[in-house]
């Protein structure tokens, strides 16, 4: 994939906000279905797949007014994961991601910060960054990306620039961007210039800020 595509969906209208379980819960429509599903999942974790797949059809996919960047289906799925016993979350998140469609995968990625599974999230993040689905790449660079080592994180950021994903979606960008990322961005800028193509404005801004500091 390369530039020239008509649209770059990132699956969210605004920068990813780290929501907590308590913040999301009141926003999701069909609270009765969700409460019942969460109770069932807490008791019998192996049933989570069924509820997870059906969540969008049950609660809809509308953007949530009080949770910027979240849609009803993603929130419901995140809350289903968060209802699992803590000891089962890493395993089930991996299963649901591995067997998920694109919407389910994105929901798992967005849920990761509220699951407290730490470095167990890394294989999922690396898988998402390896895809060419801009919504998954964007979701993988949320708060849980702090578990990625610096080389993997830089590759993720560079991929965002390459695919046209807005850098505002990258969590902790200003804090984490380093000289090596500046070198990589500079090389991409040179390559684009040689081809008569431009870099996204946010990447140019980032590159300038990094090279000023160096």
């Amino acid at each position: 994939m390369d530039a020239g595509l008509p649209a770059v969906p990132d699956g969210t209208g605004s920068p990813g906000v780290d929501q907590t379980e308590a913040q999301l819960l009141p926003d999701v429509p069909d609270a009765g279905w969700l409460a019942e599903a969460r109770a069932r999942v807490a008791e019998r974790p192996e049933t989570v797949g069924r509820y997870f797949a059906a969540a969008g059809r049950q609660v809809g996919r509308a953007p949530l007014a009080d949770a910027p960047g979240w849609h009803a289906d993603e929130a419901a799925r995140a809350l289903l994961l968060a209802a699992l016993p803590p000891g089962r979350r890493a395993e089930e998140a991996g299963e649901l991601y591995g067997h998920g469609d694109a919407g389910e995968k994105r929901a798992v990625l967005k849920a990761l910060p509220m699951l407290g599974i730490g470095a167990a999230a890394v294989p999922l993040l690396l898988d998402a960054i390896r895809t060419n689905d801009t919504r998954l790449v964007a979701a993988a660079l949320g708060p849980c990306a702090r578990h990625l080592d610096q080389p993997a994180w830089r590759q993720g950021v560079l991929k965002c620039v390459f695919m046209g994903v807005r850098l505002a979606l990258v969590h902790d960008l200003a804090e984490r961007a380093d000289a090596e990322l500046a070198t990589m961005l500079g090389a991409l800028a040179d390559e684009r210039a040689a081809a008569g193509r431009t870099m996204p404005d946010d990447a140019i801004t980032l590159l300038r800020s990094l090279t000023r500091e160096v």
Partner: peptide, 10 residues
């Protein structure tokens, strides 16, 4: 159910 719907959506 993953890549192909994304490719189409563009």
């Amino acid at each position: 159910i993953g890549w192909e719907p994304f490719r189409a959506s563009q």
